[in-house]
Amino acid sequence: MKETKNIIFTLDGREAEARPDETVLSVAKRLGVDIPALCHHQAVTSYGACRLCVVEVKKGKRTRIVTACIYIPADGDVVETGNERVNKLRRIILELLLARCPEVDLIRSLAGQYGVDASSRFRVSGSAGAGERCIICGLCVRVCAEVMGQHAIGYANRGGKRMIATPFETQTEDCIGCGACVFVCPTNALHLEDIGGKRVMKELYTSMPMMKCTGCGREFATEKQIEKVRHCLPAAHDKIAMCPSCRRAAFRDAAGQALI
């Protein structure tokens, strides 16, 4: 039989209980302990990319630094989420993030909270720094692959040139234009715009045709999004090609008919 005993450990001086597969970050959230994290989302597997959620774990005489979003505590662990060593590390991480993305409000406000000087002492090479907003946390990549099942985006290049991109930096057939990547991006590095009957995501080299509502003629979703909904709903209703406001009108009229 599978072991289902909960783990008892110490979190910031108080006793905490974790389910066998629960991470420190999840327990901390449950108990109202604030740990900053940029690359974490409940709907996808943790990746430990942004490193902001670092915490200190003491086990007997050993002390080490781990990322709270990945680390699964063991019985008797003593976890400290905001001591001097942890805060010092977070300050360095924020300085590095700030050097790469000086214009991102979220990073600036976090840096302010931790008392990091707005002008970072680190210098970046290449294109990063000027207008760069992506911290390569990979939330978009994970959401696209794990949640939507589309695998439309991934990482390109290595080292300082690493970036989020579609294969060969061209429009990909796999993208349905749902905008989940844009929604989850913590730093607003991705953008989605509906212009001239097309859904444009310029950072992802994507411009795809949208569907016109059969009621009012307004473009309301991409053709591939509708295809996806049809696929998920085998018994799709007849209003699938209508925009939400026309669907409301159709229902209203049906209710009116019933009155007569």
Partner: peptide
């Protein structure tokens, strides 16, 4: 809200058009 990834499939699936994405509230 913690689990939502904003894919808007629900918005497009709703036959009554009464689910919407609020861009300001995210």
């Amino acid at each position: 809200g913690g689990l939502c990834v904003g894919c808007q499939l629900c918005v497009l699936a709703c036959p009554f058009g009464v689910i919407r994405m609020d861009d300001d509230l995210h």
